[in-house]
Design a protein around this nucleic acid. Structure first.
Lengths: 242, 242
DNA sequence: AAGTGGTCTAGACCACAAG
DNA sequence: TTGTGGTCTAGACCACTTA
């Protein structure tokens, strides 16, 4: 979460309680909702909000009429698709370290972009900040991130920020509050520059996440394509069936 | 939704209203929440529930202090990742037709499975129903679905159902109510049998969704790997940033 | 200041599973 | 029947944008 609200604090408390083993019984069952409300001194609204977040990240599941259960830890190496925060935060969550090994930045006209969103009409003279970042996970080449930022929205990106978390850089700016991100997941042959970085054959597959980042006003901020190392990158999501 | 509840009916009504053009103004803005509550005679709870569902499927976005806006139609060819219902229903939603071209079914011991979930302990003598389905989207080869169902949970799968919606077949069964599905998304080289079906070179990439389907009791029902045609398959998700 | 969506309250009632 | 989670009510108050 951008601002720590009650829910994210409660989520952390529950995770801590689970990891200490004090919260679940021998059948991996948590206390009932009324008991958890009493223990954490929260209303049912807040509690169920937190439990829902724990469900969608694969921590627990709830069984109608029975109770809430902790799931066996799973898919340790995978990135949770709807993680809050930036990719490096998500890497940290699973105990890994994401670092930018090489980065470049250049201002280009829209016509020079290698790809564009389908659904946005650009002013013909608008300019983009093109960023390429080669990033490693625990020193194993992990992802090539090829991004374009609308210069009409974000004036400049200081070069030092390329090697840190761009997500946090935007968070700190005024008037650039991110609202939602479209993600299109597909597979493509790995581009040449990425295959060199990842030391993979030129005809290797790659997992591609093409995303479009919008401000909370609905204004497009950026669009990018991320080429993941297919040998180690996995995205994780829980789908709940109602 | 498995059972049509108020929310899914309201979602359909709102979509109909949007598509008829009567619900949004020239700025793609919907009426305010109080107006929508009045129009559809629902409480704010039900309305916001429906609007949230429309947000996560990319139909609308809400701007704090301003209003709710309809998004330009986008990514028409892509499958919404957290769609409700089966894959063929989702294909129908985007105006396409998913059909099974070839299918096979066989009972095998656990030891003969080509892959297994990391997080489930099988009884050593348990048996699986192995199903392979080659499925086309509007007659273009689209996906190879390689699934294993726990025979201890689902006794048999009538052969005719292999060519329809297995999702609906399970829905109709008693005691096999699906609760949640883990999805692991990755990229792998296309298997040989799939490359023949899809008429793609043997070293083509493929988009792989490996999933594990659990009953609402937490019991594992099935696990599968789906190899998608990388030229046409795209998964879509909206990530909301708070 | 007015109107919008976001969060939260304090319940009620329902659906489900187990004894 | 009891206790569980799932849904819903009818508000209140807050945060945000615009005028």
């Amino acid at each position: 979460m951008t601002t720590k609200n009650d829910t994210s604090i409660l989520v952390k408390k529950i995770i801590t309680g689970i990891q200490s083993g004090q919260l679940m019984d021998e059948n991996r069952k948590l206390p009932s909702e009324p008991e958890l409300m009493e223990r954490y001194q929260v209303t049912r609204y807040a509690l169920r909000h937190a439990l829902k977040q724990l469900s969608t990240t694969g921590y627990v599941y709830q069984v109608h009429g029975v109770g809430t259960f902790v799931r066996p830890q799973q898919d340790i190496g995978s990135i949770v698709l709807d993680h809050t925060g930036g990719l490096s935060d998500e890497a940290a969550r699973i105990g890994r370290n994401l670092t930018t090994k090489k980065a470049s930045e250049e201002i280009v006209p829209v016509s020079a972009a290698e790809f564009l969103p389908d659904t946005w009409d650009f002013e013909p003279d608008s300019r983009l900040i093109e960023v390429k970042r080669y990033r490693s996970l625990d020193d194993v080449p992990y992802v090539l991130e090829h991004s374009y930022y609308l210069q009409s929205v974000i004036k400049e990106i200081p070069e030092k920020n390329l090697y840190g978390s761009l997500f946090h850089y935007f968070e700190q700016q005024r008037d650039t509050k991110v609202g939602f991100i479209d993600q299109l997941i597909m597979s493509e042959p790995l581009p040449k520059s990425a295959s060199e970085f990842m030391k993979l054959p030129i005809d290797s597959p790659s997992l591609v996440v093409q995303d479009e980042t919008y401000l909370n006003s609905g204004q497009l901020l950026a669009f990018s394509k991320q080429y993941y190392n297919y040998r180690i990158a996995k995205l994780f999501a829980v789908k709940k069936v109602h």
